[in-house]
Design a binder for these strands. Structure first.
Length: 491
RNA sequence: GUUCCCUUCGUCUAGUGGCCUAGGACAACGCCCUUUCACGGCGUAGACACGGGUUCGACUCCCGUAGGGAACGCCA
């Protein structure tokens, strides 16, 4: 179904690294809002920082977005990198001529000017302003030059100028009605003449953001809180062009456990990290959604569909939130266990492959074993240690298992176990029960002394899923081999 | 320094002036289930940053203070 509303929401990352979980949450909210109101979700790439932007980052971020299932209808195509949609191009680096046109317009209308100030001069000015207790704004001598004069000077001068916006001298109040923060007031005097176009011809964030959001008919802008103070400059630009302003929603920041802005030193912060650690995209979305938003039904576990249905801006929280990996794990575990066994098995394949596990291809076996193991899994990666004992040729005795093997009563139990297993045709749950009973009476052991040796002889660990359910999942030859290995470690 | 934003259990949050003796979830702890480990069930503990107002009444509105964050870039 194509979009039939005027709701157009964009996610506009800058490709200067991986997709951060904060960015992912912004994208999620934008996506949910678009979906909820049958609007269009747009991906625009803000790559005007030539030094830091890379195509590789752009591809990575798009992949992460795809992994999360946040598909866009308009924007840069993740495969071909081509522009899709009628408002393109969607990479800001390809829109330079557009920005230049709008800058020229401002120049002609005396609302902007060429500024030839050098870095040193600017530093001096700012220092002086600071010393005199004034706001650190620049005071450009080129501000009131007629355009022609500046153009002539530009031709003969060796320094390439920037284009600055002419912030009116008289103070004015700008009001922003923010979707999450309500009414926010700004005084125009807090900003000085800011750069619109860099000396290399590339526009600056605040400028292209306004032009693009306007030209692309964006109706709602969800972005991080750190952009809130940028809004003043942007409102000035909107005004200069007489553009209609979209609705803004400034989202709170995600914090680390020390209440500082989440960054690399907190550990995993990229969506891809979580992917590799075995988190499910639906769990990631669920958890991220709850970090700054709450379900009107007080639901904690929500599918993507439910998220779309229940999402709205009125339940967005303006306070910053700490990223709690423990809760993420719980959310992930819950989604994981809800998966049907066929799907879960498929998702586990890469992990098994990576560790060269030799596991049965029988579907019933797979389902049975998953049923047994999944209650102990929080992430997909947890399956590795859980299934290791079920894979052939990977038997290992843990330190705690060796403790069990050192017990006096252990050796006879395992020897009995070996002889009984040898005699048994089919190791069903019932057969196992009988074997256990026989050992109990013949070896005169019970409780821990009976149970643990068998467990260790089967999986090499004193803890894990129920042995009577585990044994039927294993081959007799393998079982015997394991028991022999265990016996070698018995005193 | 200036401006802006934020502040409810350890964490995520509910709360839009009386429904609050402040509810839920994760984590913690305890009990039950279980011859292990998990899962599951039940339960316990745990918060309105502080100080002033406004009001019959304030977690909720206003003003301060404190703390945290952001912006003041030719980064986004």
């Amino acid at each position: 179904m194509s979009s039939s509303s005027d709701i157009r929401v964009r996610f506009a990352p800058s490709p200067t690294g991986y997709l951060h979980v904060g960015g992912a949450r912004t994208a999620l909210y934008a996506y949910l809002y678009a979906k909820k109101y049958n609007g269009t979700f747009i991906l625009r790439v803000e790559d005007t920082d030539l030094e830091r932007s890379t195509e590789e980052s752009m591809r990575m971020q798009m992949q992460d977005l795809k992994w999360l299932g946040l598909d866009w209808q308009e924007g840069v195509d993740s495969e071909t990198l081509k522009n899709v949609g009628e408002f393109g191009p969607y990479r800001q680096s390809q829109r330079q001529d557009i920005y230049q046109k709008y800058a020229d317009d401002l120049l002609e209308r005396q609302l902007a000017y060429y500024c030839f100030l050098s870095d040193e001069e600017i530093d001096q000015q700012k220092e002086l302003a600071k010393k005199e207790g004034r706001p650190p704004h620049i005071n450009s001598p080129y501000r009131d030059w007629p355009l022609q004069k500046a153009l002539d000077y530009k031709k003969e001068s060796s320094t390439q100028p920037v284009i600055r916006f002419k912030v009116p001298k008289e103070n004015r109040e700008y009001i922003l009605n923010d979707l999450v923060r309500g009414q926010v007031k700004f005084q125009s005097e807090v900003v000085g003449d800011f750069v619109l176009i860099r000396s290399n011809g590339m526009p600056v964030y605040n400028f292209c953001c306004v032009i693009d959001d306007s030209l692309m008919k964006i109706s709602h802008v969800f972005r991080a809180e750190e952009h809130l103070s940028n809004s003043l400059r942007q409102m000035m630009i909107y005004e200069a062009f007489n553009f209609e302003r979209p609705q803004f929603g400034h989202l709170s920041i995600i914090l680390g456990s020390d209440r500082q802005k989440l960054s690399k030193r907190h550990g995993a912060t990229s969506v891809n990290d979580y992917n590799e650690q075995g988190f499910l995209p639906e769990a990631m979305n669920n958890f991220l959604a709850l970090l700054g938003w709450s379900s009107p039904k007080a639901q904690e576990i929500l599918s993507m569909k439910e998220l779309v249905e229940q999402f709205d801006t009125d339940r967005l929280n303006s306070a910053s939130a700490v990223f709690d990996e423990t809760k993420l794990k719980w959310v992930n575990a819950t989604h994981l266990r809800a998966l049907d066994h066929k799907t879960l098995w498929e998702k586990l394949q890469p992990y098994f492959l990576k560790h060269n596990f030799d596991l049965p291809t029988d579907l019933e076996w797979q389902s049975l074993s998953l049923g047994l193991m999944k209650t102990s899994m929080e992430t997909l990666a947890d399956a590795v240690e859980l299934f290791r004992p079920l894979s052939k040729g990977t038997f290992q005795l843990s330190e705690k298992a060796k403790e069990v093997l050192s017990w006096e009563s252990t050796r006879p139990v395992i020897e009995k176990w070996v002889s009984l297993v040898k005699k048994c045709d089919k190791l069903t749950e019932e057969a196992f029960g009988e074997i256990q009973q026989t050992i109990k009476t013949e070896c005169q052991v019970k409780g821990k002394n009976l149970f643990m040796p068998i467990r260790v002889a089967v999986i090499g660990q004193p803890h894990g899923a129920e042995v009577k359910l585990l044994v039927p999942l294993m081959e007799k030859s393998d079982l015997l081999e394991r028991a022999q290995t265990a016996l070698k470690s018995c005193p």
